[in-house]
Design a binder for these strands. Structure first.
Lengths: 135, 135
DNA sequence: CTGACTAAGTCCGGAATCTGGACCCACCGT
DNA sequence: ACGGTGGGTCCAGATTCCGGACTTAGTCAG
């Protein structure tokens, strides 16, 4: 987890990934929506590409233009973003509900829930025990 | 989500919370296990307490000593930590498997899965659509 | 009573990162 | 020729992080 946070724990990194999920793949678009300094965002996109989370794809030849798309590893960050969003919606919403609501294709408003893959039960910290530890 | 990351997105914040989940509630213990600079960890614990994620509890009167315990809001960060761990286990494990394995009380090795709370289906980014947007 | 140790921090100076704003280049439309 | 767009880079200053030394209060061993 420490290593995971070395990559995605930097400021703006997960916000950039979220923008990619929401369909904003262009640099200027991300700058506008996240409010990140252009410089920082450029650096972050570089580290995300280097980490194999995003892919820099040229979509226009002559004035070389690029888009950032999620790789498989990037798409697997979706659960992280959903759980973060849910926590924020619950504890920081404040002014008239959450700023972004998603709908699941099953027809309901999407609320992300974390379960044990084996038994399907909702996950609680007290129901788990460590098996091995390092450090 | 931006606001959530303002709180838990700082370096070491989530690692401190993880330690609390693992039962290490003391300052020196956290320093040892996370490797964070004492100074930074002290600052981080202060912001987490201020944000209502941890609670600073005195466990010894005379040389005043404190432990950090999770509040309800803190416990609700468990899903975030689990999904981060899972991503790291999958993409960064490298040397002989993940550094920490948890067991769920159902008897299996714990693998966290994120599902739609309404229909129980595993969550995929392509199965969701935004309903409202701000910004 | 001296020295060593623990716990929970604080203090410090230097290093790394983040920030906003200005700038650059290539192209497009008018 | 002029302004706008897209994807950056460059810079100086502010903020944050870092490791190590230090502090305070109390305990334990010899």
């Amino acid at each position: 987890m420490a290593r995971t946070l070395d990559i995605v724990g930097e400021k703006w990194a997960l916000l950039a990934v979220r923008e990619a999920f929401l369909g904003n793949h262009r640099f200027d678009e991300m700058v506008k929506r996240t409010g990140a300094p252009r410089d920082t965002l450029a650096a972050r996109l570089r580290t995300l590409v280097a980490a194999g989370i995003l892919e820099r794809r040229r979509y226009c030849e002559h004035p070389a233009r690029f888009e950032y798309h999620l790789t498989g590893a990037g798409r697997d960050l979706y659960p992280v973003i959903m759980t973060l969003m849910r926590w924020g919606d619950r504890y920081l919403a404040g002014d008239g509900g959450p700023p972004l609501v998603l709908q699941h294709d099953c027809g309901h408003r999407l609320v992300a829930q974390v379960v044990c893959e084996a038994c399907g039960e909702a996950l609680e910290a007290r129901d788990t025990t460590p098996l091995t530890t390092v450090g």
